[in-house]
Computed example of a mutant assay.
Amino acid sequence: MAIITFKGNQVTTFGELPKIGADAPNFRLTATDLSSKSLNDYLGHNVILNIFPSVDTGVCAQSVRTFNEKASQLKNTKVLNISKDLPFAFARFCAAEGLDNVESLSDFRDGNFGKNYGLTFVDGPLEALHSRCVVVLNDKAEVVYTEQVSEITEEPNYKAALESLS
């Protein structure tokens, strides 16, 4: 279990993020068109997993905007926004914001992504949602960078995540 804070109050997660150098756990997530996506769909690309509680919060929305801006400058890289938000919420948000350099995927069906990546909250006011994390994978789906933001209300370290692909 990881111990982090939400507005200064301690909360815990289901487990730990995958280790650097490990193969990333496979996943089955739902795209905004309701199709299923798995890790195999992204093999051959670097992948930034931008994981958060809900796109309908300010910090989460800002992380999507920031990675959208940065993604346009990256070669052979996909940015996946992942939460338990419904695909409809993701589609609405990205359309309203004009975001087209990121892909949004939902773990609403079974929550296995959050469990397999060890980042689902097991207590606190956001229980059952995902903690704020960034996991970067190389083109072979090996973990090259992880960050679990220690205070949920803060943004991730974009620079470190992007530099891990250099």
Rank of each mutant, 00 (worst) to 15 (best):
A24I: 01
P25K: 11
N26F: 03
F27Q: 02
R28I: 09
R28E: 15
R28S: 14
L29S: 03
L29H: 07
L29D: 05
T30Y: 05
T30D: 02
A31Q: 08
A31P: 03
A31M: 08
D33L: 09
S35F: 05
S36G: 03
K37M: 10
Y42H: 07
G44M: 12
H45D: 06
H45R: 15
H45F: 11
N46E: 04
N46R: 15
V47N: 02
I48K: 08
I51C: 04
I51G: 02
I51T: 03
F52Q: 05
S54Q: 07
S54D: 01
D56Q: 09
T57D: 13
G58W: 06
G58P: 00
G58V: 04
C60T: 10
A61R: 14
Q62Y: 11
S63R: 02
V64W: 00
R65L: 01
T66G: 01
T66D: 14
T66S: 06
N68C: 01
N68V: 00
N68M: 02
E69K: 06
E69F: 00
E69V: 00
K70G: 00
K70V: 00
A71K: 04
S72T: 03
S72G: 15
S72N: 11
Q73L: 07
K75A: 15
N76A: 08
T77Q: 01
T77C: 07
I82P: 00
K84F: 03
K84W: 03
D85S: 03
P87D: 09
P87H: 11
P87E: 10
F90N: 01
F90T: 00
A91R: 14
R92S: 09
R92F: 05
F93L: 08
F93H: 03
A95W: 01
A95S: 15
A95F: 07
A96R: 10
E97A: 12
G98Q: 06
G98T: 04
G98V: 05
L99C: 02
D100Q: 12
D100I: 01
E103C: 06
S104K: 08
S104R: 09
L105P: 02
L105F: 07
L105A: 07
L105C: 07
D107T: 08
D107S: 07
F108A: 09
F108N: 04
F108D: 04
R109Q: 14
D110T: 10
D110V: 02
G111L: 07
N112Q: 15
N112T: 12
K115E: 14
K115V: 14
Y117P: 08
L119F: 06
T120K: 12
F121V: 06
F121K: 13
V122W: 02
V122H: 04
D123T: 06
L126G: 09
E127D: 11
A128W: 10
A128E: 14
L129E: 07
H130C: 12
S131F: 09
S131E: 13
R132K: 10
C133P: 12
C133Q: 08
C133S: 15
N138P: 01
N138T: 10
N138M: 13
A141D: 13
E142S: 13
V143A: 14
V143I: 14
